[in-house]
């Protein structure tokens, strides 16, 4: 099948790739571009492990086709934080021990960033509902929510 040429900006870098019409953005990121920080948990938009931002909008990359992203600005977990310093959200996840196995963590870091950009001062309930699309089987979410609320507070103070 003929492949389509797609041009995007990913984590600030211009990225071109060829993909088949049926390839999801998740497959392109992981298998074509080597960005394996974005995880596959279900392939059906139910678990949020593959969360990325497209033009600042939070999406499951398994539900987006690669060919749809031409001209888009995409941010993945690899684009969060600087090479020498973690993002506050990442720091707070570590401080609060908000991960056990860590497979859901990249998706949660991306979703939390989207949450705090939309709502810098979420209530516990708002955080829980915003992050309801990111499944975690290890933690029971307690430490995740605490990390998110603490990150929000720290970011508000430094804003």
């Amino acid at each position: 099948m003929a492949k389509t040429h797609v041009t995007t900006t990913i984590n600030g870098d211009l990225k071109e790739f060829l993909c088949e019409p049926g390839d999801t953005l998740l497959q392109v990121l992981r298998d074509e571009l080597g960005l394996t920080g974005t995880k596959e948990g279900c392939g059906s938009g139910d678990c949020g492990a593959c969360s990325v931002l497209i033009n600042d909008r939070l999406v499951c990359s398994c539900l987006v086709l690669g060919v749809e992203t031409n001209g888009d600005v995409i941010e993945t977990v690899e684009g969060i934080g600087d090479s020498d310093k973690l993002h506050v959200i990442q720091e707070k996840f570590l401080e609060h021990a908000a991960l056990q196995c860590g497979i859901c963590t990249p998706g949660l870091v991306v979703s939390t960033k989207a949450l705090l950009e939309e709502n810098p001062n979420p209530t516990e309930e708002e955080a829980r509902y915003y992050l309801a699309g990111n499944l975690c089987r290890c933690t029971g979410y307690d430490k995740i929510i605490k990390a998110v609320l603490d990150a929000a507070e720290t970011m508000r103070e430094s804003a």
Binding site: G34, T36, V77, L86, Q90, L94, L99, T105, P106
Partner: peptide, 23 residues
């Protein structure tokens, strides 16, 4: 103590390699 886990940095940055991440 509540130390920071040694594998934590890799896990919050997406660098940690899981089963499907090796090509």
């Amino acid at each position: 103590q509540r130390t920071i886990r040694p594998d934590g940095h890799d896990k919050v940055t997406g660098r940690a390699n899981y089963a499907a991440d090796l090509t």
